[in-house]
Amino acid sequence: MSALSNVKGPKSTRAGSKTLAKLAIRLGAFVAFAGILVYFAMTARGFTSPYNLMTVVEQSAILGLLAFGMTIVFAGTGTDVQRGGIDLSLAANAGLCAAVYAVMMREGYGNGLAIPAALITGMVVGLLNGIAVVSLRIIPLLGTLAVMNIAAGLELTLTENTVVSVSTPLMQVIAFGKFMGISTLAWCLIVVSMLLVWVMHFHRIGMRVYAVGGHHEAARAAGIDTGRYIYGAYIFAGFLAGVTSILIVSRLSSSTPGTGLMLLPILAAALLGTVFSRRFIPTIGGTLLAALFIGFLANGFQLLGISSYWVAGVQGALILLVVAVTSFAKNN
């Protein structure tokens, strides 16, 4: 943190109008979020029912966890999301892990082997990203795009593009279980969010990740092994893809093609999340809010009978808007 504030220190003196603009954007984001919720509450039948609200939180768990992975990559590779790193392979990675888990279960290996195999697969894909970006110095957009294709290809090879069905008691608990009236998936989102908020915002490791992403050279001068942290960010994102894949397979009772399509919502959530933070940097809390926002948006659209195809369009528009607004605020 000290490294980071030293770096940002001199800039913050001519803050006046800039701070005001940032404040306006942040407030605007919160007001827009609240406004859209109120609109849905007034127009969409059953939107505010407790069952529906809980459903949205549950539906946001998978998106949220993957978006956390993207957030950590953003944080570690450049808090300015336009010039920093990215992990385009995240969704395809989750699809591959899901395929590994489902195929191993089908072949009779059991959770004891299949779950670690899925997690390790995710981390290996993360490691590949690290090698591409850190060791081979390929720009992240291309490096992770290539890894995305590798992961998607391996998934197709494993599943032959078919649905691989699995059913276990553990999956039943994840998909349909409840504890204190809250579903397992919602618990997963809550617990992982809390853990990551602690690690990323209150623990030394998280501070250093932000330092590396915030100002690479300064972090290196302060004695941080920056390469190791970037490797770490990609591998941890891969680990989260592995964890999420278990939730995906549980929810769908199978590994199905199409997980890779989640890339757009993941990017939208992680980028939109930056608007909710004070300095427009990726934060776990911001991403959580953004993932819930996207969940509520999809839910509201469904309830109002607006085609789900619009959701993709709106997500794309949100990405454009967020990137434009934050870069405007930063360069103002």
Binding site: Y51, I248, N299, S308
Partner: peptide
Amino acid sequence: LDAGRNDQTQISQIQTLIAQ
């Protein structure tokens, strides 16, 4: 509700319908 050929979307939509 049309899930656009995506299993996850269809499951979400079924959940939403149940809530209705």
